[in-house]
């Protein structure tokens, strides 16, 4: 058994919240540069250049890439051999988010009640996804998720007969109708299977994979490519102003599901595909 103080988790999350908001991951930056080289439209190229320039300003000045520093999605892979000493994990996580957002000059975007809508002023509570894994380490990922991209996300329960063609149509319909408001070029996370409650999480987990990576299950690589090509054929382009680059990547995560069900969720993400991971 390894003892890890709760305060270490708090400090790690405070640091990750700041870094995730200042540093665009290299895989995303590379994908933007590659997209810019393939763009035919001068306006699209100009927007992609602004996005790359923005990443430089944010990194050099340690300021947020986007004013929407998001709801803090925290993914914790907790080693079964770890004993957390001190407060409970949820409290350590929320304390880390509050500290990171205050110290990092990050916007607080959470309201306490969805209808009364009073800001909690510290960006808590975080959205915590906890998985118990073998070993004596804790792997923590912070994904600041913007509100515009959340509003452009979707979930639908299909009958099994809908199959892959139904999924393709759903993804294209969602990108066509809502994609512009999610700040394209997009990263599209697709969850397939699980249950109503699980499939949204699968779609979010799909966003954690590096842009340009290939899924473990071979058949899904071709499916991801098919969806990416179909999305980019829509012509929506960067910020919806036309062009070849509507999405940088489509990632699919799948899971077993009920014989009657085909759950599908689409977690839309903007070009500011922020995520940062650290292992304790």
């Amino acid at each position: 058994m390894r003892i890890i103080p709760a305060a270490t988790i708090t400090e790690t999350i405070a640091r990750l919240c700041q870094q995730a908001n200042y540093f665009l991951p290299f895989d995303v930056e590379d994908a933007l540069i590659e997209a810019s080289q393939k763009e035919g439209s001068p306006r699209a190229r100009e927007i992609l250049t602004q996005i790359s320039g923005n990443a430089n300003v944010a990194r050099e000045r340690s300021i947020a890439l986007c004013q929407d520093t998001g709801i803090a999605e925290i993914f914790v892979n907790l080693g079964q051999e770890v004993h957390i000493d001190g407060e409970i994990l949820q409290d350590a996580v929320n304390k880390g988010v509050a500290r990171g957002y205050a110290m990092g000059y990050l916007r607080t975007s959470i309201v306490a009640d969805p209808l009364d809508r009073v800001n909690t002023n510290d960006n808590t509570p975080a959205q915590l996804t906890l998985v118990i894994v073998p070993g004596d380490r804790i792997e923590i990922t912070v994904l600041p998720k913007g509100g515009g991209t959340e509003n452009a996300s979707a979930l639908r329960m299909f009958p099994p007969s809908a199959g892959w063609p139904g999924i393709v149509e759903f993804v294209l319909e969602t990108v066509r109708e809502k994609g512009i408001n999610a700040c394209p070029p997009l990263v599209v996370g697709v969850g397939i299977g699980g249950s109503f409650s699980a499939v949204g999480k699968l779609a979010k987990l799909a966003l954690l994979r590096p842009v340009g990576s290939v899924p473990a299950a071979g058949a899904y690589a071709a499916r991801e490519r098919e969806l990416l090509d179909a999305i980019n054929a829509l012509g929506i382009g960067p910020m919806g102003l036309g062009g070849r680059t509507t999405a940088l990547a489509v990632h699919i995560e799948h899971a077993p599901c009920h014989i009657a069900c085909l759950p599908v969720a689409i977690a839309m993400n903007c070009h500011s595909m922020r995520r940062m991971t650290e292992t304790i």
Binding site: Q50, I51, R61, I63, L65, C66, G148, C183
Partner: peptide
């Protein structure tokens, strides 16, 4: 419209 997600750049 302004470009979304380039908030650091626009702050300048």
């Amino acid at each position: 419209v302004a470009t979304g997600g380039v908030a650091a750049l626009l702050s300048r």
